[in-house]
């Protein structure tokens, strides 16, 4: 599974970082989250899906 963030939508509330810090980092300068992995480890896929579902502006894009 791949995941990316649409930076025009990311509002920097760090929710994804709280849900799955192994995959989502927070950039303190840009006040936006960043994806820190190329491919989501299998054991974190559910957490990433949950982070995408909870992302209020819908900035997290999950690609199978």
């Amino acid at each position: 599974m791949k995941v990316r963030i649409d930076y025009s939508l990311c509002m920097g509330d760090q929710n994804c970082h709280k849900v799955c810090p192994e995959v989502f980092d927070f950039d303190e300068d840009q006040l936006q989250s960043r994806v820190r992995v190329d491919t989501v480890p299998a054991h974190l896929e559910d957490e990433v899906r949950q982070a995408a579902k909870d992302c209020a502006p819908g900035a997290i894009i999950v690609e199978a």
């Binding site: 939508l9 509002m11 509330d13 992302c55 209020a56 502006p57 819908g58 900035a59």
Partner: peptide, 17 residues
């Protein structure tokens, strides 16, 4: 407020598009 921010971000993207 967080949910309202989410809606505003969506509409800003719509305005831009």
């Amino acid at each position: 407020l967080r949910e309202e921010h989410g809606r505003i971000m969506k509409m800003l993207a719509v305005l831009q598009r």
